[in-house]
């Protein structure tokens, strides 16, 4: 069953074509890592998938919900993590999670929020302002925010930006856990080694189109690096 379905997607800013008739299917429970150089259209694609941006033409379906007709249901099916945690620095972690829980129409009590904070290793900082958190802690808090409604699909846009080695490892561990739990994950990055180590399926986005798509087991890291270099040269 296809969890994410992208059909003839096109996005233009003025005359500039950012995404060019993109077609992509992601099966339920799959972990797709989409690589691409700067300007390839990765972030624009994630924004369209999460309904933060409107496509020029084409369509997207996530968990069976058409983005044009069922945008609200589609958003209920996704959790998004980007380099920005979408959290309020002036509120504590508890207040942030309580806020998003109420926004998602969930009736999470203090115990449920504590459990969520515990899952991301931040129970001891629950009553501290998010503004006091390190970058790695903010990103873990962002994971808690993104999965607060237990979405079947996770969209990740460069979530490792600015993380130190330890935070990097913790985030990778959490993502692997979500994958084991059956969530469908689409991770966007330009870090080949990271993507190859964590993903199950690898694809390259070049000039707004998928130019290379394979299962991780079919390509060794070094071969994939060479292939990716070639694709980047093609964009130039």
């Amino acid at each position: 069953m296809s969890m994410i379905s992208i059909i003839n997607l096109q996005k233009k800013f003025g005359r500039k074509v950012i995404i060019n008739n993109l077609n992509l299917e992601v099966e339920k429970g799959d972990f797709l890592v989409l690589f691409g150089p700067n300007g390839a259209g990765k972030t624009t694609l994630i924004k369209i998938l999460s309904t933060l941006a409107r496509p020029t033409s084409g369509n997207v379906t996530i968990n069976g919900y058409d983005m044009r007709e069922k945008g609200v249901d589609l958003r209920a099916s996704i959790g998004m993590i980007s380099h920005n945690p979408f959290l309020y620095d002036d509120l504590t972690l508890y207040e942030n999670l309580k806020f998003y829980s109420r926004m998602y129409g969930l009736k999470k009590d203090e115990k449920a929020i504590k459990e969520l904070a515990d899952q991301v290793g931040l129970l001891h900082r629950l009553n501290d302002s998010v503004g006091e958190f390190s970058r790695g802690m903010k990103q873990r808090a962002a994971v808690a925010r993104a999965v607060i409604h237990d979405p079947p699909v996770l969209l990740l846009d460069e979530p490792y930006t600015g993380l130190d080695y330890r935070a990097w490892g913790m985030l990778s561990g959490m993502l692997s856990g979500f994958h084991r739990d059956g969530k469908t994950i689409l991770l966007i990055t330009h870090n080949v080694e990271l993507g190859h180590s964590i993903g199950a399926r690898l694809a390259c986005l070049v000039n707004g189109q998928v130019s290379f798509d394979c299962r991780k087991m079919d390509v060794a890291m070094e071969d994939f690096k060479i292939k990716y270099q070639q694709e980047m040269e093609a964009q130039k």
Partner: peptide, 14 residues
């Protein structure tokens, strides 16, 4: 500016 507007827009609501 703080990037939280996208967080609000991601919430499944009108």
């Amino acid at each position: 500016d703080r990037g939280t507007l996208d967080g609000l827009m991601l919430v499944p609501m009108d």
